[in-house]
Write a protein that binds this DNA or RNA. Structure first.
Lengths: 259, 259
DNA sequence: CCTTGACCTTGACGCGGCGTAAACGTTTAT
DNA sequence: ATAAACGTTTACGCCGCGTCAAGGTCAAGG
């Protein structure tokens, strides 16, 4: 298998690389979305490097559910800046992932409720889905004031926890959930020195023992500060309740007598 | 606005709640996917609580791109356990999000390459998309040995960094990217005590000063250990290169003289 | 009681984005 | 020279609805 960069491809070759069907490429040719670089005298479609890049762009948009016709208009636009477009893709994808996050959250909630036999309001059951409408709208009429912060988001999903046994892992996971629940409860009290807040901090310490080879108060305090400063954590703990990360920090600091 | 739990709904009412069209509900009735609980003598469709739950299930599957026909078979299965199904949804959604993560990563890579004008192998350009095929296949023929670890993944996307000025944030972001690049480079050397690895550790320390109110070697060392144990970080740093997280830890520990 | 408007019904057509099959030409390997 | 592996066009079909059109039903008000 040679590594060929920027070569020419026939339909099937490009199809294989891009993970689409040859038929799809012919269709894209037909509707004028992606014309081959040239056509041999026998009528064979030949795609060059520019077409490869363009196809990539197209597939990005397609991934977002944009109609092919619209995609064509977008990439045909003379004012079309590829890099800008890519950044826009990026933004939309991150947004779409956020929607997935909500769906997952809804689902987790549903599962929890079912497991406990507790009822759930019907509106709640569809929380995650509705996001989609908003988002599709935004995908159409986007372009606005989007210099917001959140864009450079960091993700850390779907990784494997290494170095822990299955049992330890499960124990940790259970603890995690407990912490989230406690956070919610304690936050409601509003006081980081309240009994539930202390319990929260204790559970958090317990959880830390799974994570760290040895526990020290100093490191724990540092960690608490880091939580607030690091978006990877704010996002995580704010899932439980808004402002949850800060509350957790305050609770920990209070617990450690450093409040 | 009253909060009604477990009521009965007409088509449009249910449609509004679930965020789908009335036509969709009629279509689902037509193809036998979701029959109303009962029909009035005038022919009006009336949906009850069970149908609401079922619709939720259906929409979860639909979200995964499963064909309606297939969905019907699944939920019509007498051995169909709702809770199990929900858990399966959960797993699939998490998986789908993982695919999105890859897409986002591919896109980020593309942007970086474009910005630097560096070429990229054509195969790389489609990395993110191909996942989809694998995943769709899995959605169809799933059910297998899936007691793997990664499922309970943790996410931390789309959050706002609080308490930092725009400038600080940008400086930090730049540092972050530098660290990722260094990690890649240093990892290639294979030696956590090598000069590039030392530089990596230094940069990481520098970055920490943005995060922590005060720096201590002990906390730094703890953090390094945590990186490896916490999936939120392994996933993050393994983006740069596989095994990157462990290498980063080793580099830091070596730098601190605790290797 | 009758009307009005907001709901509900059942058809029927159409569309986007291809999959798939038929019938046929071209290129490459042996 | 021939077979196998490609390529081509044309055409029909499918799914998951959106979108009319043509009409029945129900609660409220005159």
């Amino acid at each position: 298998m040679e590594y060929t960069v920027n070569q020419e491809y026939t339909v099937n070759q490009l199809a294989k690389i891009a993970g689409v069907s040859a038929r799809t490429l012919r269709y894209y040719d037909q509707i004028g979305l992606l014309k081959p670089a040239r056509v041999t005298e026998a009528g064979y479609r030949i795609y060059g490097p520019r077409e490869v890049d363009r196809l990539q762009q197209i597939l990005f948009y397609r991934e977002l559910g944009v109609r092919l016709e619209t995609i064509r208009e977008i990439v045909a636009d003379p004012g079309f800046d590829e890099l800008d477009a890519l950044r826009e893709h990026y933004r939309l994808l991150v947004q779409q992932r956020a929607r997935l996050d909500k769906l997952i959250a809804t689902l987790a909630k549903t599962i929890r409720h079912r497991e406990e036999g507790a009822p759930m309001r019907d509106e709640e059951k569809f929380q995650g889905f509705k996001q989609k409408l908003i988002q599709e709208n935004d995908a159409k009429y986007g372009e606005e004031a989007r210099k917001r912060f959140g864009d450079q988001s960091v993700d850390a999903s779907n990784a494997k926890l290494m170095g822990l046994s299955q049992q330890e892992f499960e124990a940790m996971t259970a603890l995690s959930e407990e912490i989230m629940a406690l956070l919610k409860e304690a936050h409601a009290s509003g006081d980081p020195a309240s009994p539930p807040a202390r319990k929260l901090a204790e559970k958090h310490k317990e959880w830390l023992t799974y994570m760290w080879p040895e526990y020290s108060e100093e490191a724990h305090a540092h960690l608490a500060e880091m939580y607030v400063a690091d978006e990877r954590f704010t996002a995580y703990y704010d899932q439980a309740v808004e402002g949850g990360t800060e509350f957790l920090r305050d609770a920990i600091l209070s617990y450690l007598g450093r409040g």
